[in-house]
Each structure stands twice: as structure tokens, then as C-alpha cells.
């Protein structure tokens, strides 16, 4: 089975990369973009398991390695 994991910066944590991208977009004349936040996207393939078990496993993986919960939050989507 497959899962998608999105790791993004928590609200309130400044994102210097996102800010630079925002300003580059405006240099390109792409108007109307108000904010950009840069995050990570991971695709995980895992042994078939009950969705609850898979989620528990990935939650553990996120807390212990895939995300740094001091600055990041994560979202898990199981397919």
C-alpha cells in the first residue's frame, strides 16, 4: 500500500525560502500570490496493513524522524 506524507512548517514559523519565492514570483509579474510556504512531500510504500495500523506506524515515523515537530507539522494520506 502507498501513503503520502506532507511535512510543512508550523504556523508562526517564518519561512525564508517561501518569502524569497514570493518575491521572485512578483518579479516575474505573476500577480495575486499572497503567500508561499515551502514544505516536503514524501511517498511511502509499505506492506499491506489495516489503515489504522498503517497510520499508527507512519505517525510514529513522522514524530521520530520524518518531521521535526519543533518547527514542522505533518499530514498523512493513505491510499
Amino acid at each position: 500500500m502507498k501513503a503520502k506524507i506532507y511535512v510543512t512548517l508550523k504556523k508562526g514559523v517564518l519561512d525564508p525560502q517561501g518569502r524569497a519565492i514570493l518575491s521572485s514570483l512578483s518579479h516575474l509579474g505573476i500577480a495575486g500570490v499572497e503567500d508561499v510556504r515551502v514544505g516536503k512531500y514524501m511517498e511511502v510504500r509499505l506492506k499491506d496493513a489495516a489503515p489504522d495500523d498503517a497510520r499508527r506506524l507512519l505517525d510514529d515515523a513522522c514524530r521520530r524522524l520524518l518531521a521535526n515537530t519543533v518547527i514542522e507539522e505533518y499530514r498523512i494520506e493513505i491510499e
Binding site: V13, L14, P16, Q17, N68, V70, I71
Partner: peptide
Amino acid sequence: LLESGLLPGAMMVNESL
């Protein structure tokens, strides 16, 4: 040390990039 939790906080990319 920060990632290990031996010290509190985290590092971000430099403000200047």
C-alpha cells in the same frame, strides 16, 4: 544535539538564504 532532543529548539535556513 537539537535533533537528538539533548538541547531545545531547531535550526532554520538563514534569514538571508
